[in-house]
Amino acid sequence: MRTFVAVAEAGQFQAAADELGISQQAVSKRIAALERHLEVTLLVRTSRGSRLSLDGQVFLPHAKKVLAALEQAEQAVRPGRRPLRVDVLHRRIAPAQAVYRFYRTHPEMNLDAVTLSNENAARAAQAVLEGTVDASFRALPVDQVPAGISAERLLNAPLELLVGPGHPLANAPWVRPADLAGHRIWIPGIRQGTEWAAFYQALSHAFGLSIDALGPHFGDEALMDALADSASLATLVGGGDRYVWPQTHDLRRIPLHEPTPVYPHALLSRTGDQHPVLTALRDHLRTSGPRTSDDVWAPDWASR
């Protein structure tokens, strides 16, 4: 088909052969084979070269579309051309915001942010191994990183306390994690077997906190409504998480210090993956992650 288009555009078999880097005899054989397959005559030889038959005129635009589609398919999977698929876990939290900032800084980079929201860290790592995605942000314990996967902790998201205006800590400039002991911290939607369940369990044990995951999770908006109406309810969010609530809610984000608990997002990728956008993303995260003090806390099992 590519040979046919070359002859149709050049008007001569020899010119098409020169363009394709093959012999004129090979061009003739390819055209003959295509015509036998279609059971029509596509090209009519003349004293000046060749011209399209009526069937050839009808077939030519379709052939060009097929070749263009093939070229697009090839470009899509060539190294450096295929979009980098990154699992950001959730659209509102720090990994998604970090990838978005990277894209804003490098708009020429070809990437696609996706969410494997129903997958735990181990399954997300398997998705990376299988090529479903190229990379994933997950808090995967170091002893659970499978062979063939590289895990680099590139995004430490500092936690903040989120409360309504009537909460006793609403006006505090910052709070120690240990000061939260005795306060009701509600984080609905924690599922057993997920990395965030393991994280909050470790956080609770480290600082003597009571984290309540009971009750159905009706979405972030319902959680914000509950915080605004309560003088005792609080939740934890990441410093880079993006939540929106009505101005009348007057919710307060309060940093946690001494130490600063951080959610340890590690970037999982296939060992040796040289995708240029992945390399650029790593470099960006190494130099532009959230700034935290040296006094931070993360679970002992977190990737380094």
Score class of each variant (00 low, 15 high):
residue 101 R to L: 08
residue 173 P to N: 10
residue 183 H to V: 08
residue 155 L to C: 12
residue 92 R to L: 13
residue 88 V to G: 04
residue 168 P to T: 14
residue 145 V to N: 03
residue 110 N to W: 01
residue 122 A to Y: 00
residue 170 A to Y: 03
residue 95 P to I: 05
residue 182 G to C: 13
residue 172 A to I: 02
residue 184 R to E: 13
residue 161 L to Q: 04
residue 186 W to L: 12
residue 176 R to M: 08
residue 133 V to A: 02
residue 181 A to T: 15
residue 159 L to T: 09
residue 138 R to G: 06
residue 172 A to Q: 15
residue 139 A to I: 03
residue 182 G to I: 13
residue 179 D to I: 01
residue 156 N to R: 13
residue 134 D to F: 03
residue 121 A to N: 04
residue 105 T to H: 14
residue 96 A to Y: 08
residue 180 L to S: 08
residue 119 E to Q: 15
residue 114 V to H: 03
residue 174 W to I: 00
residue 127 A to N: 14
residue 150 S to Q: 13
residue 103 Y to Q: 15
residue 133 V to D: 00
residue 138 R to Y: 11
residue 102 F to V: 02
residue 168 P to Y: 11
residue 99 V to S: 09
residue 153 R to P: 01
residue 170 A to K: 03
residue 106 H to G: 00
residue 108 E to R: 12
residue 158 P to V: 13
residue 107 P to W: 07
residue 127 A to T: 03
residue 110 N to Q: 12
residue 93 I to E: 01
residue 137 F to Y: 14
residue 113 A to G: 02
residue 104 R to P: 00
residue 145 V to L: 10
residue 145 V to C: 13
residue 180 L to P: 03
residue 187 I to G: 06
residue 131 G to A: 06
residue 163 V to K: 11
residue 116 L to S: 05
residue 129 L to C: 12
residue 155 L to T: 05
residue 170 A to C: 06
residue 111 L to T: 07
residue 170 A to V: 06
residue 90 H to L: 07
residue 102 F to M: 05
residue 146 P to W: 13
residue 172 A to P: 04
residue 171 N to I: 01
residue 161 L to P: 04
residue 114 V to T: 05
residue 173 P to V: 03
residue 100 Y to W: 12
residue 178 A to W: 09
residue 96 A to E: 00
residue 131 G to W: 10
residue 165 P to H: 04
residue 107 P to L: 10
residue 89 L to N: 02
residue 188 P to I: 10
residue 132 T to F: 08
residue 121 A to H: 10
residue 180 L to Q: 07
residue 182 G to W: 11
residue 108 E to Q: 14
residue 130 E to M: 13
residue 169 L to S: 06
residue 131 G to F: 11
residue 103 Y to E: 12
residue 141 P to R: 08
residue 108 E to W: 10
residue 171 N to M: 07
residue 104 R to V: 10
residue 143 D to T: 10
residue 181 A to V: 05
residue 160 E to M: 15
residue 90 H to M: 06
residue 160 E to V: 11
residue 92 R to P: 00
residue 144 Q to C: 08
residue 104 R to T: 11
